[in-house]
Simulated scan of single mutants.
Amino acid sequence: MRSQLEVLNQHRLSPVSSYTNLGSGLDLASMVDPDEGHVQGSLRFSLFYDQLQSRLVVTVLDAQSLAVQDFRRSVDPFVWVRLLWAEREDKDQSSLQCVLHEWQTRLVKKSCSPVFGDQFSCALDEEEVSRVTVKFEVRDYDKYSRYGILGEARVSLNHLKIAYPLELRHNLQRPKKDIVGEMLLSLKYMPTSQRLEVGVLKIRTVSYPTTTERAIYAKASVICNQCKLRHQRTAQKKRWDMTVFNEVLTFLLPDPQIRECSIIITVYALHPAQKSSKRLIGQIHLEKGSTSENEHWKLMMQSLRQPIAKWHFIQI
């Protein structure tokens, strides 16, 4: 007879294969955050750390009273689960994180109080448990449009007693991004030739000690009126804690577009020896209206023909 953990492992989605499932292959910009004050409902889940087998078991049980978005009468919810590992146990604002594993539950159609009952497990050293945060993101599936985010729940495993299964219910909160790296970017716009140059200079990331990924690259996309106009990517580089690229990606943009467009820099990790091994690390969104990114854009437009370099957080 198969053990319970063997059954659980059948439900596990690897970090690579999960990106072919619901909502996984999309850019973060294609996700719709809920409106202010429109998050409601709760999520019930359980956590268990098997000390004998050094495995963490996460069970997504059910959700209640989810919000209905837009003009729809119901929602088609599923839950995206991330295990975030911090580079330091004493997490602070400057502490970077990385995604250890990602899973998704099954889709439950037309239900504001869905029952999931999906279990996932992964190997995890006991000394690393305190650095892990489990993030549950409740998403609304839409076949023809962008997925909506109904809210999130997260729990840090630091000082949490999960030697026995611990069942919790958390109220959903507005989703927030997590910092998974930093990138040194340069921007230069030349109005005469209508050319925008995006320089990917350095990328700093952290990775779990046993990670097998060996390469990293970045892709820059130009978005205007929510439509992707064009994109370019850097070459693959061997992944280090600080990976140096020093590459310039060039885009031809007329004056009206440069004043209305936004730039999305997406960072991927991969294992060159495997096919379909691309895994999203995180993104930077350069657009008007955001504080730090908007400052960089303003400096570029005030210093035409001069490259302006600035560090940005990579978020997921």
Rank of each mutant, 00 (worst) to 15 (best):
K91M: 12
Q69D: 06
D90E: 14
A63G: 08
K91D: 11
S65D: 15
A67L: 08
A67F: 07
Q64Y: 13
D90S: 12
T105D: 08
F78K: 00
R73S: 10
Q93N: 10
T105F: 05
T105Y: 05
S74K: 04
L66N: 02
Q69F: 07
V81S: 01
R82S: 13
R82N: 10
V79L: 03
D76G: 02
R73W: 15
D90H: 14
F71C: 02
Q64G: 14
Q64L: 14
L83Q: 13
R82A: 10
W103Q: 09
V68P: 06
D76M: 02
P77D: 01
T105M: 03
V81D: 04
H101F: 12
R72E: 09
K91L: 06
L100H: 02
D76Q: 01
Q97G: 05
W80T: 09
L66Q: 02
L96M: 07
Q104R: 11
A63I: 03
D90P: 09
R73D: 09
Q69P: 04
A63H: 00
V81N: 04
Q93K: 14
A63Y: 00
D76Y: 01
R88M: 05
S94F: 12
V79R: 01
W85T: 04
A67V: 07
F78P: 00
S74G: 11
S95Y: 05
V99C: 10
D90Y: 11
Q97E: 13
V75R: 00
K91S: 09
S65C: 07
D70I: 05
W80F: 15
R72T: 04
L100C: 12
F71M: 07
L100A: 11
E87R: 05
D92K: 11
Q104N: 11
W85R: 06
V79Y: 02
P77C: 03
L66H: 00
D76I: 03
L83Y: 12
V75G: 00
W85E: 06
D70H: 06
S95R: 01
R82Q: 13
E87M: 09
T105E: 03
Q64F: 05
A86C: 15
F78D: 01
V99G: 00
L83K: 12
R72K: 10
Q93C: 09
R88K: 15
V79S: 01
V81M: 10
F71P: 00
V75H: 00
R88C: 14
F71W: 07
Q97P: 03
R82E: 08
D90K: 08
S65R: 05
L84P: 03
E102Y: 04
D70P: 01
S94G: 11
H101A: 07
V75C: 02
A63F: 05
A86W: 03
L66M: 02
A63T: 05
L100P: 04
D92G: 14
V99I: 15
V81R: 01
E89M: 13
V75W: 00
C98D: 02
E87S: 13
V68K: 06
F78M: 02
S65F: 13
F71N: 05
S94W: 14
A63C: 13
P77Q: 01
